[in-house]
Design a protein around this nucleic acid. Structure first.
Lengths: 143, 143
DNA sequence: CTAAGTGCAAAGTATTTGCAGCCAA
DNA sequence: TTGGCTGCAAATACTTTGCACTTAG
């Protein structure tokens, strides 16, 4: 229930259309605690507007992703996962065993970002970064 | 033509079967300069052994991935990409527009890794990390 | 020998697209 | 008013699976 409408309005100001469908998709993402799959988002959207098509959800997510309101994560198996990008940009550390996600401030990545820019003229988008690894719990289990 | 056979032999020693198909898939990956898609690998494999099935390539890649000989990257669009895991671990910066990949030494990530370990007891596996962004070329096009 | 691996065919899952009609700006 | 967006239906792209046969060890 946060201020995603503010971000959304910025899109309208930039000349894009703010359709109910797009707002519903955004709302669904803010409603979900962590990441959500397309099907989960679709289900939530249809609670309020039953005739929204799955393809529209895909297209809205693509749109929102391209405009920086939504982040995408593609796991090795299963469908892509999406999340609303909140005010402060951040990366994620994701446990490869249990999927637990830790929020990582971008400040921890500045060294990397600068080196990529200086050395390769590569503009890293670290707020979309997902760092694989093992959380404390699973690390204990595995070894 | 590097020493992938050494790694492969280790699998046999561990009790797994080293079939010609699996060796061909590994060879194809070592032959490719950067990342390769399943289709590219399949094509290369069939140059030498025309009756290897696509599903076998998928299964071999899965097997090799699970045993740490092959890395997998799933881009937002298009098929998964694979690469042989060479001696020195490294991360990748991947252009979200054209898929161009830059090799990133893990040394550039030590700050991040240490902070995750200290602050969250999270064991980051940075040799599987893929950093999204825009390469020099695409950054020029987009803006 | 024999369980693990393969080829083949078919199905399954995830995602994209063409097009006619609709509606936000 | 009109070009961007949507719903619908269908196609496509990618990956997995069941089963009978083969083969590495």
């Amino acid at each position: 229930m946060s201020c995603y409408r503010t971000d959304a309005e910025a899109l309208r100001a930039a000349g894009y259309r703010l359709t109910p469908q797009r707002l519903l998709v955004l709302e669904a993402l803010y409603h979900h605690p962590g990441h959500a799959t397309v099907d989960e988002i679709w289900a939530r959207v249809r609670e309020q507007h039953p005739y929204v098509d799955l393809s529209t959800v895909y297209r809205s997510l693509q749109f929102l992703k391209e405009h920086g309101l939504v982040g995408e994560f593609r796991p090795a198996h299963g469908p892509a996962q999406y999340e609303a990008i909140r005010r402060r940009p951040h990366a994620h550390a994701v446990c490869r065993e249990c999927g637990t996600t830790i929020e990582v401030p971008v400040a921890w990545l500045t060294e990397l970002v600068e080196r990529l820019a200086d050395g390769h003229r590569f503009q890293a988008e670290v707020d979309h970064l997902s760092i694989p690894g093992l959380c404390e719990r699973c690390a204990a289990k595995v070894h």
